[in-house]
Design a protein around this nucleic acid. Sequence first.
DNA 1: CTGCCTGCAAACTCTTTGCACGAAT
DNA 2: ATTCGTGCAAAGAGTTTGCAGGCAG
Lengths: 153, 153
Amino acid sequence: MSIALARDKFRQYLTQKGLRVTNQRLAIFDAAFNRTEHFTAEQLLDYARAIDDSVSRATVYRTLPIMTESALLREVDIGTGEKFYLPISGNSTQVAQVVCVDCDKIFEISAPFMEWYGSTVSSKLGLTPESQRLQVSAHCDVFRNTGSCPRRS
Amino acid sequence: MSIALARDKFRQYLTQKGLRVTNQRLAIFDAAFNRTEHFTAEQLLDYARAIDDSVSRATVYRTLPIMTESALLREVDIGTGEKFYLPISGNSTQVAQVVCVDCDKIFEISAPFMEWYGSTVSSKLGLTPESQRLQVSAHCDVFRNTGSCPRRS
DNA sequence: CTGCCTGCAAACTCTTTGCACGAAT
DNA sequence: ATTCGTGCAAAGAGTTTGCAGGCAG
């Protein structure tokens, strides 16, 4: 999905829900969609302020749920306290994360069988699955051998 | 694993690591191992205080990592802010969680293929897997149909 | 014009930590 | 007698919220 198309989708979502299209919301949207890697709320605040310096932390935190509910951003919680976000590109609905504990890098991997697993297991419990998440924590081979990692930020 | 056996394992772990066997640590251990459902740190504090009212919140938080490192408790993070804990019974190492968002109940399900998935996917990225977690969020069929759920706490 | 949206700062939740006292070894 | 462990309370991180003023519709 191109960024222009995604921006249209965002505006439509806002209008349709009776929410206002404000400069701050658009700045936060643009900041998010110029990213290719995962980012935190705090980082998004920085990026958005580079576009519109009136953007506040509160508005970032209030806009993030809107963007995840409208399926524009994926929220990734790897249990480190802070949440990560990533623009949803194309039709990647069923993904797993591989988190390198040396590089602090998050890889997104397609995992279509997850949905099947969720359905199978849930129905046995009298439940209807809503979502599933699969995360692998791993060590970096390069880091273990050389003490540093090219992927490290 | 019986509770007496698990308690021995805990005492052995403490001694072996040069840690002291205190009344507070034993009270926290007993409080945890009398549970069959998931509990939070705060709940564990209550349970432990019923055994030894000198137990403090700080000691609970300092003892929990010891019990997870010694493979007596499993830590479960379902992304709700607080972490849950469960005594590890028997040889259940590869488990997934099914979380009912209506009942707030956590089911533990054996998922041996998770380890295989972690290895496969990690090696392609030049990584060595350390751990993996799989969680399914689901709605309760009974709750959807009747507006209440027998499992609800 | 109306009322949703905003920035600011305080509040909140869960967890961690510094300190001086107390107890296990 | 040493130290490690403890309780207390304050600090910390990330996120949420109440309020008065501002801007979209």
